[in-house]
Amino acid sequence: MSILPVSPQGPSNESRFDEEALDYIARSLESQGYAIVPAALAPELIDALFLEVKSMSGAEFKRAGVGRKDDFQLNRFVRSDKICWLRGDTAASGAFLDWAEKLRQGLNRRLFLGLFDYECHYATYPEGAFYKKHLDAFKGQSNRVLSTVFYLNPQWSPGDGGELVIYDESGEQVLEKVLPEYGTLVIFLSESFPHEVLPAGRERCSIAGWFRVNNSSALLPDPPR
């Protein structure tokens, strides 16, 4: 199921959006709060994103932290990945953000979520890296509504580890254990599902993102980050 078909000439931001895929994601979010979509993007775009993240220098990535704004802190016991924000200034990242915008519009039409914008970053997990169980948003305290993870790991096998474990709202029962396989998209309600990344047996790459609502007021603007 390809959400964003891409022309053979390379990643395109003019391609027709796959309404069937949108319907599937919306139904899954409505019925269970999450969706798992293998081969979510066209192969040309997946390859372009993979080549981009692999070509980036280590200096372009920074240690990932916990929390946002005044609460931000580095904690190597909670997470040990490195990140680089996507800004749409390359062909691949621009096409990915165009896909995210079409997904935002499509989910708003179907589910009336009021999604306002999207932020995302490349995340690399060196061998042995992990991210302990956490929530992406706490009820009533965040503007993150939907979390997305898109995987860029060719020929990933169960023995390579690095699974995304999704728990029920209590954080006790495992609902899904997702291998970070090439081209797979996971999307879930940010406030509802504690989740973790198990230690990776080799380098693991993904794009993590969040669809947000706008909490701006006359006195307090709400920037993307």
Rank of each mutant, 00 (worst) to 15 (best):
S57D: 15
V197M: 09
T184I: 07
K82G: 02
G114S: 09
V174A: 04
F188M: 06
Y167I: 01
R225F: 12
P43Q: 07
T90D: 09
F72I: 01
V174R: 10
L219V: 12
S15V: 14
P221A: 12
K177G: 00
P8F: 12
K139N: 11
I46Y: 04
A95I: 02
S55I: 04
L51N: 15
S147T: 14
L152R: 03
A26C: 08
R110Y: 11
F77I: 12
S12Y: 10
E169Y: 12
A91T: 15
Q9H: 13
G33H: 07
I3P: 00
S2M: 13
G183P: 05
A129D: 13
L86N: 00
L135P: 02
F188Q: 00
I207H: 00
S80I: 04
L107P: 05
R144V: 08
D117G: 02
L189W: 13
H195A: 00
P154W: 08
S206P: 06
F50C: 07
I46R: 14
N75W: 05
G88Y: 05
V6A: 14
L29F: 08
P38S: 03
L164R: 02
E196I: 01
L49I: 02
S217F: 06
A100T: 05
L175A: 01
L185P: 07
Y131N: 01
F150E: 03
K102M: 10
M1G: 10
A208V: 14
G161I: 07
E52C: 03
A91R: 15
S2Q: 14
I25V: 13
A218D: 11
H195E: 02
W85D: 00
L51F: 15
G161L: 08
A129H: 10
S31W: 09
E119N: 01
S31I: 12
A123M: 08
L107C: 03
I187P: 00
T184E: 03
M1V: 13
R204F: 05
Q105V: 13
A123H: 04
A92Y: 01
D47G: 12
E30M: 13
F130R: 06
A200Q: 11
E30S: 15
K133V: 10
G33W: 09
A39Y: 11
R104K: 14
F50A: 07
Y122V: 02
D18L: 13
R202V: 11
A42H: 15
F61K: 00
R204A: 04
H121K: 03
P221T: 12
Q105G: 14
K177H: 00
L51C: 13
P158R: 11
L107K: 06
N75E: 11
G94H: 05
G10K: 13
L45S: 06
L164Q: 03
L97N: 00
F211G: 04
L113S: 09
P11G: 12
N143Y: 10
Y167R: 00
S206Y: 06
K102V: 04
D81L: 02
Q9N: 14
L146R: 01
C84T: 00
G58E: 09
Q9R: 14
Y122W: 07
E176M: 02
